[in-house]
Write a protein that binds this DNA or RNA. Structure first.
Length: 203
DNA sequence: CGCTCGATATTCT
DNA sequence: GAATATCGAGCGA
């Protein structure tokens, strides 16, 4: 399978999209002199954020200038600045009955352009390059200038492509939130060495 | 390894 | 004024 998941792929429940994105590629293309540089990684960790009924979501209060992408067309990048220091990247996704939703991309396994990512991060260890939402945006040079770009086209400087092979996926509770902590809307490849946190082993 | 804390934009109360 | 979909430095064990 090559190319990008199309618009319809993102038009289903946000949690389902989050689950299916594990194993796909996040690709950042940067125009150089004459040729494009590709920075990419396999998505190994995602989280789903819903609309008005998800107390942990940015969309819970309705549309604002920051979260407007979550209420717009699906398959679009939602990039926001948080904690005064970091950017996080999402892709808008929801079923037709939901008013808003997006999938936060939390971790990648570095694939293409690894040496450039190391420069962006000032970090040599590959497993620490993109194992967190703030880290991967730094490695791929993603900032708010990319908010609103179409993620369904290979021509976009930020987009999602099909992966090479399917990955295992398990669900877990979301990280870094204080509301709706019981929902299991975090999806990870449990065998990846590049997760933002280890999976809780069930007893 | 685990804990605490500072950085500090945006939004909410 | 407080909280936040985070990270890394500093410290103690």
């Amino acid at each position: 399978m090559t190319g990008c998941p199309n618009r319809a792929f993102y038009r289903r429940s946000t949690a389902s999209v989050a689950e299916r994105l594990v194993g796909m590629k996040l690709v950042r293309t940067i125009a150089g002199n004459g040729m494009n540089v590709r920075l990419s990684g396999i998505i190994v960790e995602t989280e789903a954020y819903g609309g008005l009924d998800d107390p942990a979501s940015h969309a819970r209060m309705g549309p604002t200038p920051r979260n407007s992408v979550m209420f717009g067309e699906v398959g679009v990048a939602y990039v926001y600045f948080t904690y005064g220091n970091h950017f996080c990247v999402n892709v808008s996704a929801r079923s037709q009955i939901e008013p808003a939703g997006a999938v936060l991309i939390r971790a990648l396994e570095p694939l293409e352009g690894i040496e450039i990512m190391k420069l962006h991060r000032d970090e040599e260890e590959s497993t620490s390059l993109t194992n967190g939402p703030g880290k991967l945006t730094q490695a791929l040079n993603i900032d708010s200038a990319l908010n609103g770009v179409d993620m369904t086209s290979v021509r976009s400087e930020l987009h999602i492509e099909f992966g090479e092979k399917p990955r295992e996926v398990v669900s877990a509770t979301r990280i870094g939130i204080s509301r709706a902590t019981e929902k299991r809307w975090r999806f990870v490849d449990p065998f990846s060495r590049c997760l933002s946190r280890k999976i809780q082993i069930k007893v």
